[in-house]
């Protein structure tokens, strides 16, 4: 039972931030595409901005890993 709950916790720890990251990236990506259409020189900065929310899923990944590895 406990093992199952830990696994569920780990799944939530990485799953929810992954959804949040996807949501954030979709919004940044859409706005970024608009910005790049008008100013192509912003491409580099937009790629970086899209990568920023990934920290959330990384924190989730570390938490999940710590939960599973005990």
């Amino acid at each position: 039972m406990e093992e199952g709950l830990v696994a569920l916790a780990a799944a939530l720890a990485i799953g929810l931030p992954a959804l949040a990251t996807g949501l954030a990236q979709s919004k940044i990506g859409a706005a970024g595409a608009g910005a790049v259409a008008e100013k192509p020189e912003l491409s580099g900065i937009i790629i970086i901005l899209i990568a920023i929310p990934e920290t959330m899923v990384l924190l989730g990944f570390v938490t999940a890993y710590l939960l599973i590895s005990g």
Binding site: E54, T55, L58, L59, F61, V62
Partner: peptide, 12 residues
């Protein structure tokens, strides 16, 4: 502190 954890991306 968040920035330090962010380097885990290298491994991930």
């Amino acid at each position: 502190l968040g920035h330090i954890v962010s380097y885990v991306r290298i491994m991930a």
